[in-house]
Amino acid sequence: MKFLKFLVIIIFSINFFLFGRVFAAGSKIEYPEKNWSFSTIFGSFDKASAQRGFQVYKEVCAGCHGMRLVSYRNLAALGYNQDELKAIAAQFEINDGPNDEGEMFTRPGRPSDKFLSPYPNDQAARAANGGAYPPDLSLIIKARPNGANYLHALLRGYEEAPNNIKVPEGMYYNKYYSGNLIAMPQPLYEDGVEYLDGTKASKDQMATDVTTFLAWASEPELEERKQLGVTVILFLIVFSILSYFSMRQIWAPIKNKN
């Protein structure tokens, strides 16, 4: 009987969770759902896909979008070794200084540097993009409801605008963007990138890869979190069972008297 009541509590709490989901869902546009390797309980990132995604980011997105929260050293999590990291970082010219003479100077990037932003400041970014600010992508998957599916859909959602919609200069029609008019031109075209590992660079492949890469960038702790989570939950379940039977045993004399 008491256990039944306890179940009621748990169901009560789960309802709160469901509520959370109701609040989180804001937008009315439905995105195609994809089975991401990282969205399951034991999920992890597909390293090869994330590496390809990094290439897409570097060659396509990075022209306009920064990732100011991520360092080159963090890419080690995608399977790059130290020499590769140094080579990747060295491709970028980083502003540093002042030096002993009080002068600013540029030097090749180091793994400890944050990703080089395409613009020196937000104003420059706006000025170069007709007033629209290309958002930083470090947290983009976490910062949008249903982030991974949203981004994947958005990247493939460019279409000819229906006749009844007038697309102003500098805007583009995207069926998955809220309001359908987006300032970002279509970024991905067939074979827009020549993948180092020889994978065919279809639009869907590139959208999937860059989404995987950005999902990792948003939640670099995801794999460690889920692995630790499994251990912790297993421990707690065993502990709950042990404490339940300890409780039964301690209470037995009291229960039997009644």
Binding site: F16, F17, G20, R21, F23, A24, I41, K142, A143, R144, P145, G147, R225, K226, L228, G229, V230, V232, I233, L236
Partner: peptide
């Protein structure tokens, strides 16, 4: 723990 490890942003807001 299930919330912390598997659905940490479930009750938060993406914005």
């Amino acid at each position: 723990a299930a919330a912390v490890f598997f659905f940490p942003n479930f009750m938060g807001h993406p914005d």
